[in-house]
Amino acid sequence: MSYHRWILRGKRKNLQCQYKDYLSDFKEWDQKLHAKGWFIFPQNINSKLSIDETALSKGELYTIITNKKAKGKKGSIVAIFSGTKVEPIIAQLLKIPASKRGRVKEITLDMANSMKTIVRKSFPKAIQVTDRFHVQKLTFEALQDIRIKHRWEVIDMENEQIKQARLKQKIFRPEIFQNVDPRKQLLARSRYLFYKAPSNWTENQYGRSKTLFEQYPDIGIQHH
Rank of each mutant, 00 (worst) to 15 (best):
K163G: 02
A91T: 14
V119T: 09
V119F: 04
I155Q: 04
F81Q: 03
I148E: 02
A165S: 10
Q92Y: 10
Q128L: 02
Q31A: 13
L186Q: 06
H223W: 12
A112T: 05
S209G: 14
Y216L: 02
L186D: 01
V154G: 07
N204C: 08
L56D: 09
I118P: 07
Q128P: 00
Q222I: 01
K68I: 14
N159G: 08
D21E: 10
P124M: 09
I107E: 00
E160S: 03
G102P: 06
Q18A: 15
Y206A: 15
R151L: 01
I176F: 10
Q222L: 09
L186F: 06
R5W: 14
Q16P: 01
Y62H: 13
N44Q: 12
Q43I: 13
V119G: 07
Q31F: 12
Q92S: 13
K13N: 12
Y3D: 15
E141A: 08
T63V: 06
E87K: 03
F213P: 02
E141I: 08
Y22H: 01
T211E: 14
G10E: 15
N200Q: 15
F140G: 05
K170T: 09
S114R: 08
F123L: 04
S57M: 09
N14F: 10
S47P: 02
I148M: 00
V119L: 08
K196T: 02
S209C: 15
T117L: 11
M1H: 15
N204Q: 13
G102I: 05
L15N: 14
E28K: 08
E214I: 14
Y22P: 03
N179L: 03
Y22V: 01
R208S: 04
K149T: 02
V86T: 04
L143Y: 00
K196V: 01
N204F: 10
V180W: 13
T84I: 01
K95G: 13
E141L: 04
K163S: 02
R208H: 10
N44H: 14
K74S: 10
A126M: 07
I65E: 08
A91S: 15
M115N: 10
K170P: 00
H150V: 03
I162Q: 03
Q16S: 11
P124C: 11
R101H: 14
M111W: 04
A55R: 05
Q185K: 00
Q92D: 12
N204W: 09
R191N: 11
K116R: 11
S199T: 12
K27W: 05
A142F: 03
P97R: 07
L49Q: 06
A79W: 01
